[in-house]
Design a protein around this nucleic acid. Structure first.
Lengths: 232, 232
DNA sequence: GAGCGTCACTATGTATACACTGGATGCGGA
DNA sequence: TCCGCATCCAGTGTATACATAGTGACGCTC
């Protein structure tokens, strides 16, 4: 594996996991030394992260990790709605019936009991997304969704899933999978819309609650506007 | 301006204009020498182009310019439909009435007579797109659309716009702009859908016609599948 | 004491040198 | 003549050295 790939993978994981929080300054020399690579591959990694929108050049001399606030989340979900509704509809038209009825069955019997159950559920969702991507067979769509999902990882960390919401989410996914299996594009798209609406509402509510009850842990930049995602 | 930016801008233009056709091998040393920069900034430029999907690593040693075939165009328009329908709808909800009624007026009076008229029309469409982006105010959406538009530049080069199609396109744009100005999100989205459907049909027809009447100018790769867009 | 200008340092941007891998070519043997 | 192996080379991946610009601090002047 190339050094630049390792640097990218490591930084991506650290940003998504919150180890490198929003506003963290990423100096090239410093990060290169820390990750044990030279500046050249590290610069490539930073370039990819910037193109993903996870870091931004705040000024000519300082690159920082971007943050996500409620407005960002709303924006993300606007794009996500557009892309996933289309994807669900297209998957309904093109997908393998057996694959999606099997997934619907899995959602129907998903257990959220223990920590393990929830981990299994998240893995199931990943397989579900992958199945849709494969059925749609559109690289441009998959690529656009990949960017959105990259950001969603951080969003999920901000929002605690309540048990009731998780249970509802399972049922929503089951319905989407069933609709795709049945070849019902309209239902698949509308069910996706409903699911994303509910997911967004839950996230925003969860953030609202935590931001009003806890102190903000991310220090605000001293001056200037919050770094926007440049998206290359 | 940075050397890497110049290299990126130059290569982008050459790929979009067809100077560097699909399948062209882009060696680092060779291109760096040609563009008068060193390999370091050139590599950064190639990385960005790869992330855009305009070049792809065919093997571990050779980077080539990607191609666009009819299937790619269909895929592009699937994503474009999803994003632009959403964008049009959101612009209708948020856009400045005056801006879009003014644009609708411009479309109503657009002249396609001379070469100049068509150039003006394409510039008008660019301003229209920019107005929608600004009204929607969603960086993630704008960024996703930017990628799609980057590819569309090449698609337009493949398809000859017939005068009748151009005239219809003007009217379709006028309707979309009017719908946005009127705050009619549904009409804006549906009119966008219709417009993209017609545009795609025209492009595919145009390509079909030229590919069956003319010889293929792009040499097929000797072996292996056509390079797919990796999209980083 | 405050404000502005200058100087130095640090971090980025670029160039180049080195390392390594993958492929092609040529030679030898069957 | 054809196949297989070894060697050479071309080109990428990485490290480092050099150029340059921006920032901060210090000192001078008003």
């Amino acid at each position: 594996m190339r050094a630049s790939d390792r640097a990218y993978a490591t930084l991506l994981d650290e940003i998504q996991s919150g180890t490198l929080g929003p506003g963290t300054v990423l100096g090239e020399v410093e990060q290169a030394a820390r990750l044990g690579v030279s500046r050249t591959p590290l610069r490539e990694a930073l370039g990819r992260l910037a193109s993903d929108g996870l870091v931004a050049q705040q000024s000519a001399r300082v690159t920082v990790v971007t943050g996500v606030d409620a407005d960002d989340i709303r924006e993300l979900f606007e794009v996500r709605r557009a892309l996933e509704e289309s994807a669900a509809g297209l998957a309904a038209a093109r997908g393998d019936v057996l694959v999606f009825s099997a997934l619907a069955e899995e959602f129907a019997h998903a257990s959220l009991r223990a920590e393990q159950g929830r981990a299994d559920y998240y893995a199931l969702i990943q397989r579900f997304d992958a199945a849709i991507d494969a059925s749609v067979g559109n690289d441009y769509l998959t690529s656009a969704l990949r960017t959105i999902r990259t950001h969603l990882v951080r969003v999920r960390r901000l929002a605690r899933d309540k048990p009731a919401r998780l249970a509802a989410s399972v049922e929503e996914h089951r319905l989407i999978a069933s609709a795709i299996a049945a070849g019902d594009a309209e239902l698949a798209a509308h069910a996706t819309h409903v699911h994303l609406h509910n997911a967004l509402a839950n996230i925003l509510e969860s953030i609202d609650a935590s931001s009003s009850s806890e102190t903000v842990t991310v220090p605000e930049p001293v001056e200037g506007p919050r770094p926007r995602k440049a998206h290359a």
